Amino acid sequence: MAAMILGGSDDTLRGIGLRVLSGVFFVGMVSSVKLASPSVPLGQIVFFRSAFALLPLVVFLLWRQEFPAGLRTERPFGHLARSMLGGIAMFTSFAAITRLSVAEAVLLSYLTPIILSLLAVRLLGERLTPARAAGLVLGISGVAIFVAPDLLAEIGRDAAALDLRRLSGIGLSLLTALLTAGALVQIRKLAATESAGAIAFWFAVATSLGGLATWPLGWVWPTPEAAVFLVLAGLTGGFGHIAMTLSFKYAEASAMAPFEYLTLVWTILLDWLVFRSPPGASFLLAVPFLLGASAITFAAGARLQFRRKRR
């Protein structure tokens, strides 16, 4: 009955359910990172997030009979480039989470598909369509609205009102979106010859090593509470990736796209109920611009893929 109401098959509903579940896991990961960050260094958080994500990932690969045979690769430098971009993005995104509310950091992450579409024009030879250009304009407008209070404070020389920590968080989020888009371009190239499991596994290994490399900079012995959050960050991140991977097995990306924005709803509720941080006016004003930009860009990409399939 639910399939008839939503106009899809049972497989499509299963895919949508898995995509929504992956969003819930993602919110769990982000909240665990934020709760651990006051007492645990950034590099140590990255290590635990990546190392403990390997546990569910290896079990998943064993279930799919892709471990260890499916991890062989003929493109180690491609994995290295993807891991460097994604690894730096993980550091900058976690740093942004400590400076912004969870919902603000997630909202700015919706710039990634817009930047990805522009990189695809430059690096993959795709065409800059009017829809992609419109998405870019909306995205830039949304960011401008988002930072408007701090920019107006600077123009008015109101130093007391200028929130440098928030501005640095916005800057880190924008950098994260750029790096993530670059990593996704590299994943597109790798996907032609590499399995999704191999790409995820080697990324987790590389970011674990990257986090471990920060040990000499000063790690701490976490409190029991912080240790729980560190482990949860890894497990929820790993399970979230698995749920997202499985969702594409059952449903097309276009069917799941509207439900991806539920993640923003979960983060707003999380900020409100857990961190006692209700959304501000600039956030609420920026939401339709950034979500609209992301939706337009996604729709343009979906139409392009549909035309390619018909040829």
Results as ranks from 00 to 15, higher is better:
278 P>R: 06
193 T>N: 10
101 S>R: 06
47 F>K: 04
178 L>F: 14
114 I>E: 02
109 S>I: 06
27 V>F: 09
59 V>T: 05
130 P>L: 09
98 T>L: 02
247 S>R: 10
32 S>E: 01
282 S>D: 13
311 R>D: 11
17 G>L: 07
159 A>N: 13
156 G>E: 12
239 F>C: 10
214 T>D: 09
154 E>W: 14
185 V>Q: 12
184 L>Y: 15
155 I>H: 09
203 F>A: 08
81 A>P: 02
131 A>P: 04
189 K>S: 13
79 H>N: 07
269 L>T: 04
284 L>Q: 07
304 L>E: 15
297 T>F: 00
237 G>R: 01
5 I>A: 13
276 R>F: 11
159 A>W: 15
63 W>S: 14
69 A>I: 08
185 V>S: 09
265 V>K: 05
78 G>H: 01
81 A>L: 13
228 V>Q: 11
152 L>N: 12
227 A>P: 02
68 P>D: 05
184 L>W: 14
134 A>W: 03
198 A>H: 05
165 R>A: 15
147 V>Q: 04
287 V>N: 02
187 I>P: 03
50 S>T: 05
301 G>L: 06
164 L>Y: 09
77 F>K: 14
217 L>N: 05
236 T>E: 03
296 I>A: 02
93 S>W: 12
34 K>E: 01
191 A>I: 07
180 T>K: 08
276 R>P: 00
191 A>Y: 05
62 L>N: 06
21 L>R: 08
153 A>L: 06
7 G>T: 03
26 F>Q: 09
303 R>A: 15
178 L>H: 06
185 V>W: 08
92 T>I: 10
57 L>Q: 09
237 G>L: 05
129 T>S: 15
148 A>Q: 11
219 W>I: 09
162 L>I: 12
4 M>R: 15
215 W>D: 03
226 A>F: 02
34 K>I: 00
109 S>F: 07
40 V>N: 10
67 F>K: 07
81 A>W: 10
91 F>S: 06
47 F>L: 15
114 I>H: 00
217 L>A: 12
37 S>Q: 08
24 V>K: 05
149 P>T: 00
221 W>E: 12
40 V>Q: 08
64 R>K: 15
271 D>E: 07
154 E>H: 11
164 L>Q: 06
223 T>N: 01
174 L>E: 01
88 I>E: 04
1 M>P: 07
259 F>Q: 05
131 A>T: 11
160 A>C: 00
49 R>S: 03
5 I>S: 06
174 L>I: 15
